[in-house]
Design a binder for these strands. Structure first.
Lengths: 340, 340
DNA sequence: ATGAAAGCGCTAACAA
DNA sequence: TTGTTAGCGCTTTCAT
């Protein structure tokens, strides 16, 4: 009687299950978290009772008592863009397999927004934090250091990570692509950087290092900034060909812009790579499908997420932390296709 | 002295701030959550103290005491695919603006995985749940009903939502595209459904309704299942043209496959739409860029997320719930381009 | 505007 | 293997 009334009013607790099963609350707790530590008989009674009262554990209370959560905070520069899809997938793969969950936030390429979100997410006491970002405000670094949780920074290879850095080198990859173009005989290589503030500097640095190695002088007039859209990619290639006819190769930081450029070349009947070669920093299914298919740097985006996720899992199991290396270079691949 | 030692050992609490500021813990709590309810003098002292001790609120304890969280659980069929990007962006837009956060999970098109995740996420006591899915196990429906939180189902228009249904009609949209093709004079219209289990049935139903309205008999031989890849789209159109030369239009459920088909037509020099017209169920930037650009149904994916997010926010403010309509049809647009 | 007391639902630590 | 006790760090409620 009383029971039925109460069930209407408040959600059942451990105690309700315990009473129903004729055991103590802690036994129910154990049977849920670590079934082997409870006798088979008790386990059976408890399973029945859980079903009967419709019990769903309150993880909030559990987290407060145990001082640990199963939530990893994931902060990305832009939640909707396809770029981070594979990384988030990799994180999810590693985390969900081990009973961890993701809380996700969008920092919009803004350090102050990152600061706001880091603080808000730390209030949830996550068991780890993934930042797809390597430059932070001083306050962020301080908050994260105090938090004493595993922190993975990704997106660039850096020398002084807060905790662990898992990434590829934008500089190396951009240099490799530039060298590839040089080795294929292209001499007047334009660089079309993405307008996103994130990795542009590093990619341009790699491009310049490549040029130097090829003994090609850097020409600022053919180093342009382009938004990451198909339209702007097309616009850029048109501008280059019309303004600097001796340009024979274009290296795009954005794979979207690179495809846009290639589609524009198709429309304009500019043969690729004979009239102009095109290479892209980032690979995509699409890059492999256009004609000619695009030469591109393949970044280990999925792998970054998976290894980051695995790191959080490992930290939780052996709870010593910081046993691994502080910086992991996952490398990249140059996929040569018809466009160069 | 004692203070400094303790700070090393455990994170500062409300009490530490309170002692530092010379007020009671509850005043600190108020000053954080509702600054106006505290005198300006106290507020100033407290702000200083928070900074001095490096206090980050423990939202876990807060949630347990207040019996409410700021977390919305978001379950999508596949976290990495670009399809859900705009929806998640819309959710994030509405939620983050109002101090709510997202926990995200991937149910992988599997009802049993959905059940597992719904239960796990309910344990976190979210203040709302977004499901990009409309068919559920009985247990999921029961759990969600008991949870007494706002629930948004999206992805299809349905008649018996658990709480609220915000979507577009797959049937209506597929019918509209089919009718469009009929009106443009195409008579032998193939349907290439996506192999994803999700909305395929509804889209095929719309296609058949459209055919019926056009007095065109349904021909099961040209209703095929195709994976959502560029390659398979190309393969499908090749198969159709080679096997059923009288097919004059192809309606793709997957925008990726549709673009793949168009690229294949370019390679094979099959003029579009003269040899064969192509239409796509879902729009994308890319669809607008290929030549000819693809006629496509534009789905309000961002808007679905934004309105769902707004619903959660509204429910939290007026805490009555279920004041709105139970089903919202956000419609769709048919964007006609060169491919039809 | 501020404070004191009580308790949210669970788990850690200890005991049996 | 099971139970008892004592909190986890906050917010609610009630008082002043």
């Amino acid at each position: 009687m009383d029971d039925h009334l109460q069930e209407r009013i408040r959600r059942p607790r451990l105690e309700d299950v315990a009473r129903h099963a004729g055991v103590s609350p802690i036994t129910v707790s154990r049977s849920i978290r670590n079934p082997e530590s409870v006798s088979a008989a008790a386990r059976a009674k408890i399973a029945l009772a859980i079903d009967a009262v419709g019990y769903v554990p309150n993880q909030i209370a559990g987290s407060l008592a145990s001082n640990q959560t199963k939530i990893v905070a994931v902060l990305v520069p832009s939640i909707g863009t396809p770029f981070f899809g594979p990384t988030i997938e990799g994180l999810n793969e590693a985390l969900s397999k081990n009973g961890l969950y993701m809380a996700i936030g969008d920092v919009g390429y803004s350090p102050s927004e990152e600061e706001r979100l880091v603080e808000a997410f730390l209030a949830q006491r996550p068991c780890g934090m993934y930042l797809h970002q390597t430059t932070h405000t001083a306050r962020v670094r301080k908050l994260l250091a105090q938090a004493r949780i595993p922190v993975v920074e990704a997106g660039s290879l850096i020398s002084n990570p807060i905790d662990v850095n898992i990434s590829y080198s934008n500089v190396d990859a951009a240099r490799a692509a530039t060298l590839h173009l040089g080795e294929r005989g292209y001499r007047k290589i334009a660089f079309l950087s993405s307008s996103r503030p994130s990795r542009t500097k590093e990619r341009e640095e790699g491009y310049r290092q490549g040029l130097k190695q090829l003994n090609i002088p850097f020409d600022p007039r053919i180093s342009l900034s382009v938004t990451s859209t198909f339209e702007d990619g097309g616009r850029a290639i048109r501008y280059l060909i019309e303004t600097y006819p001796d340009v024979d190769a274009a290296f795009f930081s954005s794979p979207i812009a690179a495809v846009g450029a290639l589609l524009e070349c198709q429309r304009q009947q500019w043969p690729v790579p004979q009239r102009i070669a095109i290479a892209s920093f980032d690979d995509s299914d699409l890059a492999a499908q256009v004609s000619p298919a695009l030469t591109a740097i393949r970044l280990p985006r999925y792998e970054v997420g998976r290894q980051a996720g695995q790191y959080f899992v490992d930290c939780l199991n052996r709870s010593d932390m910081s046993a691994g290396l502080s910086s992991v270079d996952l490398g990249f691949q140059l996929i040569q296709r018809g466009s160069t």
